[in-house]
Design a protein around this nucleic acid. Structure first.
Length: 170
DNA sequence: ACGATGATGAAC
DNA sequence: TTCATCATCGTA
């Protein structure tokens, strides 16, 4: 299980390192590991695509908290989005986990793993049934595709930042 | 291409 | 209290 310290650093570094790691879900006695293949970085109050650009609010409070906690919010009235908080306390940033080897799309991911806002603010550990583990899989730099983030066209210049990371495996 | 569906933040 | 907006997806 990756410790809090792992997440307590630059959000883009964490995003990159999460590719090839296991997202582990334990629900009613069964534990399943999913290999993370697609993530996005959201970085600070200045990032207009990051919810924290609105400042400290009831929703964004979790991102201002310590690293290694889940930030789960409802998107488009239907889908829960799963993020892991990164960086030091009071610096709002998070990595959106968009997909795994078996599951493409952040909405499908949370639906399949039965992840809801009940996990919002909870620590990524075994007690909460959702955590991240090192897999031992080697992801080469050349296998990482970087693109602008999805669905954030409203964010002006920030929409153009190549902060989406995809592990292209063949 | 479009509607479902509800929380959020900002305006009034 | 109302309103536009939204880190999506299934159906067409």
């Amino acid at each position: 299980m990756l410790p809090t310290q792992f997440f307590n650093r630059d959000v883009q570094k964490v995003a990159e390192l999460l590719l090839g790691a296991y997202l582990v879900r334990r629900v009613n006695g069964k534990t399943i590991k999913y290999i993370i293949t697609e993530v996005e970085a959201y970085d600070g109050v200045h990032d207009k695509a990051c919810h924290a650009c609105k400042g400290r609010t009831a929703r964004t409070e979790v991102m201002f908290g310590p690293a290694g906690h889940w930030y789960v919010y409802l998107c488009y009235g239907m889908y829960d989005m799963l993020n892991i908080v990164t960086g030091p306390k009071d610096y709002p940033a998070a990595v959106l986990i968009r997909g795994t080897q078996e599951i493409t799309g952040p909405g499908r991911l949370t639906k399949t793993l039965k992840i809801t806002r009940a996990l919002n603010g909870k620590k990524a550990d075994k007690k909460n049934g959702l955590w991240i583990e090192k897999s031992g899989i080697k992801v080469l730099k050349k296998e990482i595709l970087r693109t602008p983030r999805i669905g954030v066209a409203y964010a002006g210049e920030w929409a153009k930042k190549p902060w989406r990371f995809v592990w292209v495996s063949k």
